[in-house]
Design a protein around this nucleic acid. Sequence first.
DNA 1: CGCACGATGTAGCCTTGGCTACACTTTGCC
DNA 2: GGCAAAGTGTAGCCAAGGCTACATCGTGCG
Lengths: 145, 145
Amino acid sequence: MPAQPQPQPVRPSALQAESLRQTRREHASETAEDYVEAIADLAASLGEARLVDLARRLGVTHVTVNRTLARLQREGFVQVQPYRAIFLTPSGRKLAATCRHRHDVVVAFLRSLGIPGKTAEIDAEGIEHHVSPRTLAAFAKFSAR
Amino acid sequence: MPAQPQPQPVRPSALQAESLRQTRREHASETAEDYVEAIADLAASLGEARLVDLARRLGVTHVTVNRTLARLQREGFVQVQPYRAIFLTPSGRKLAATCRHRHDVVVAFLRSLGIPGKTAEIDAEGIEHHVSPRTLAAFAKFSAR
DNA sequence: CGCACGATGTAGCCTTGGCTACACTTTGCC
DNA sequence: GGCAAAGTGTAGCCAAGGCTACATCGTGCG
Ligand SMILES: [Mn+2]
Ligand SMILES: [Mn+2]
Ligand SMILES: [Mn+2]
Ligand SMILES: [Mn+2]
């Protein structure tokens, strides 16, 4: 008898490799995005962003935050001085605004699908970094319908 | 004059910290999920999963794959022997099936929103790992409407 | 039937991002 | 004004997951 057709269509290796590379790139910028967004939120709600508050909000120790801030300063997103509050650079503020908007769009989209608020928040925190401009536009359009 | 009300509602730190912790947990299982899914795909399409094919499909070098396979063997998802093809354990096969299904649901959902196929594939590769059971159910229901 | 080449293994490097333990600085309060 | 407690800095550990360079294994073909 003839060979059975493969039950599952084969996903081309090249496309999956490209997708996974893109996912890794997104993960590489994820920390910066979550940090600047948290710093902007803290500055807005408390007047300034202090290390301990940032650590609490990010769910890590102050040690992790401190080392990461050094990298973000190298990359030009924040301005830090010993024992001082943390400030965003213009580039950091711009990134924070973009990420904040994207975050809100993703949360609103999930809620408009009927997902409860807390679950929407939790899922959005991960999903937001993997949403292309096209998909973000589709999300916004859908929840505004 | 009285203090201006804060323009943006403040997201509670505790919820954001919990969300970020959950995202980190999801990232910790992401590699295992993508690997077993790729191994199952290769076994289905080529008859067996070889190291080079896996490396090509994952978009990394064979060195990275080899080290990761050692960890996945420790964790009970794969069975590897030097110079041999790579096999999934029962637990690995189960994980692969679950992930394959979830992947397909996410892709179908994005496409049903009007996202072109390639973009849907790329976005799904990252999004899939951050979709809770509730959200997955909502995605499936929506694209089946 | 042997050997060249492709496949696989391994040594060792790097960055990120977790952590604990401990040291030092700031600051609010008596 | 001094001091205790809170905040901040730093040394050093770990695991994951990238990489290059090189060594070894297996096999198909001439
Ligand atoms: Mn996030
Ligand atoms: Mn994936
Ligand atoms: Mn996938
Ligand atoms: Mn992710």
